[in-house]
């Protein structure tokens, strides 16, 4: 690699190119690290699938009820027919027209992911804003906190009729469901995070003459950010659950509706195929969030490795 570098940059002195080559080597090592991670993920999933296949081969798992991966993944084209039903079953459109099976899976997956994402963004922005306002203004605290505390234990499922009354069908009710499922908890979590900010940090800012707004903007918000992103990640799974429920009860097309369809037509292959797709989507989403987390929270040390020495 170093040789290539020197050839491609003939002007560079050998001494100067050495550290560059070294850092490039390091970068490729980091790439290997990344590869290793994928390899382990692959191994982990293969092990799980292998066990399942084994159960099937031994005849313990009935393939009509628990079809193993090689069966439910074998006929993607077949399964794909059931995805993106909204476009497929439009009036005047035949089954052969419209997007291909693969495209349908993508469109449906994207629709559901989009709803989760939109709900998550709306819920976190609103919740952080309300949480901060509650602590910032005494009167706001007294005015809204009782209602929020009252509503937070209500199951999001109970909101489903409300979503349909208010928004009919389509994207809006599904997004609304995600927002409702997250918002109240996240407000309470924000308040809790604010209350546990290290007093010394606030006092430092106070002795330096910071105004209330400055203390909130420059101390409290950065201080609660790590906790808030953690809360967000925890709630991501809740959001995925709720969006499926919302979709399955007919407030739109999406993964939830496919699951419902599979249930009603007794199609285990389709159920597992959908589960697999949801799994991949959820995993990717969480991974992206973790990536964002590391970017935003640049100051936090990586503590995942600290117990490895034990």
């Amino acid at each position: 690699m170093a040789v290539v570098t020197r050839d491609s940059e003939p002007g560079a002195a050998a001494g100067a190119s050495r550290p560059a080559a070294a850092s490039r080597l390091l970068a490729s090592m980091a790439g290997l690290d990344w590869l290793a991670k994928i390899w382990w993920a692959f191994l982990s999933i293969s092990l799980f699938a292998g066990l399942w296949e084994l159960c099937w081969a031994m005849g313990w798992a009935d393939e009509k009820l628990l079809p193993p991966p090689h069966i439910f993944l074998s006929n993607i084209a077949e399964q794909g027919r059931y995805f993106n039903t909204a476009t497929r079953w439009q009036v005047g459109q035949s089954m052969t027209e419209g997007p291909s099976a693969f495209e349908s899976v993508l469109i449906t997956g994207a629709a559901t992911t989009g709803r989760v994402f939109a709900g998550l963004v709306i819920a976190s922005v609103l919740a952080i804003a309300v949480g901060v306002l509650v602590r910032y203004y005494r009167f706001f605290d007294r005015l809204v906190l009782p209602t929020i505390t009252l509503l937070s234990p209500v199951s999001p499922i109970a909101w489903l009729p409300v979503a349909i009354f208010l928004f009919g069908i389509g994207n809006a009710p599904a997004i609304f469901m995600v927002v409702v499922a997250l918002f109240f908890h996240m407000v309470l979590a924000t308040i809790n995070q604010i209350d546990t900010v290290n007093t010394n940090l606030i006092n430092v800012a106070r002795t330096m003459g910071a105004s209330k707004a400055q203390i909130y903007g420059r101390v409290i918000v950065p201080a609660i950010l790590p906790g808030m992103l953690q809360v967000l990640r925890m709630n991501l799974f809740g959001a995925w659950m709720v969006v499926l429920v919302a979709e399955s009860t007919g407030v739109g097309y999406g993964m939830g509706q496919v699951i419902m369809l599979a249930r009603n037509t007794f199609n285990p292959s389709l159920v597992f195929f959908t589960i697999a797709v949801i799994g991949v989507l959820g995993f990717t989403f969480d991974w992206l969030l973790r990536l964002a987390q590391r970017r935003i929270l640049y100051w936090l040390p990586d503590t995942a490795e600290r117990l490895r020495v034990l």
Binding site: N198, N200, N203, V204, T207, W299
Partner: peptide, 17 residues
């Protein structure tokens, strides 16, 4: 509090970010 009177705290109190 006032910037005229600076307090150095007993525990560390730097902003980690």
């Amino acid at each position: 509090p006032s910037p005229q009177r600076s307090l150095i705290f007993q525990e560390t109190s730097l902003f980690p970010w």
